[in-house]
Simulated scan of single mutants.
Amino acid sequence: MRGLKKQRRIQIIVVAIVALAGSTALIGYAMKDGINFFRAPSQIVEAPPPPTETFRIGGLVEAGSLQRGQGEVIRFNVTDGGATVPVTYTGVLPDLFAENQGMIGTGQLVDGVFVAREILAKHDESYMPKEVVDALKEQGVYRHMEEGEVPSGS
């Protein structure tokens, strides 16, 4: 009788471990397309990701690089002060999107050009995404605005 209880406990533990491993694998599989890693332009130039990888790029929209093409195609460059990556986007840009301002885009790198499917811009004069600030600080470009200071380009 005692051996039967011990065997039953071992079976329950093994089934629980298998169920936990299976559910972890299913969660990981379901999230693989939902996780987009952030990369600064310097990281992209240094080690370009494969064209099949979706990731986020962030930095400042380079002054003088914004070009509107035929229809809704927009071209511009994103920089972190250390490197510049050309970006194309088809669609309507956010209202607060401007040159010399922070942005984050989600998309893929195709033949050296970041093809964005989503563009996010800062939401007020003082906000910049943490990832962009960190990338700019790493390049020695970021300068925190003092209270009451008017940002350039606005």
Rank of each mutant, 00 (worst) to 15 (best):
D33R: 05
D33H: 09
D33F: 06
G34D: 13
I35G: 00
I35Q: 02
F37P: 00
F37A: 06
F38K: 03
A40N: 08
A40D: 06
P41Y: 09
S42C: 06
I44V: 15
V45E: 08
A47K: 10
P48F: 00
P49R: 00
P50Y: 01
P50R: 06
P50Q: 07
P51N: 02
P51H: 02
T52C: 01
E53W: 07
E53Y: 10
T54P: 03
T54V: 15
F55N: 01
F55T: 02
R56E: 10
I57L: 14
G58I: 02
G58H: 01
G59Q: 01
V61I: 15
E62Q: 15
A63P: 01
G64F: 04
L66Y: 15
G69I: 05
G69K: 10
G71A: 10
G71P: 02
E72D: 15
E72L: 13
E72W: 08
V73W: 02
I74W: 13
I74T: 15
R75Y: 12
F76W: 12
V78L: 14
D80M: 08
D80N: 09
G82L: 11
T84K: 13
T84R: 13
P86D: 10
Y89K: 03
T90K: 06
G91L: 05
V92A: 08
L93V: 15
D95R: 11
L96M: 09
L96P: 01
L96E: 12
F97S: 11
F97P: 04
E99A: 14
E99F: 08
E99Y: 10
E99C: 10
E99M: 08
N100T: 14
N100Y: 08
Q101E: 15
Q101G: 14
G105A: 15
G105S: 05
G105F: 02
T106V: 14
G107W: 00
G107A: 04
Q108G: 00
Q108D: 03
Q108E: 12
L109D: 02
L109Y: 05
V110H: 05
V110N: 10
V110A: 02
D111A: 11
V113Y: 01
F114Y: 12
V115A: 07
V115I: 11
A116R: 05
A116M: 05
R117G: 13
R117N: 12
E118W: 03
E118F: 05
I119G: 03
L120Q: 15
L120N: 13
A121C: 09
K122A: 14
K122R: 15
K122M: 14
H123K: 14
D124Y: 06
E125Q: 08
M128Y: 13
K130A: 15
E131W: 00
E131A: 12
V132R: 00
V133K: 13
D134G: 04
D134F: 08
D134K: 14
A135I: 02
L136A: 03
K137Y: 07
Q139F: 06
G140L: 12
G140N: 09
V141L: 13
V141F: 11
R143T: 10
H144F: 14
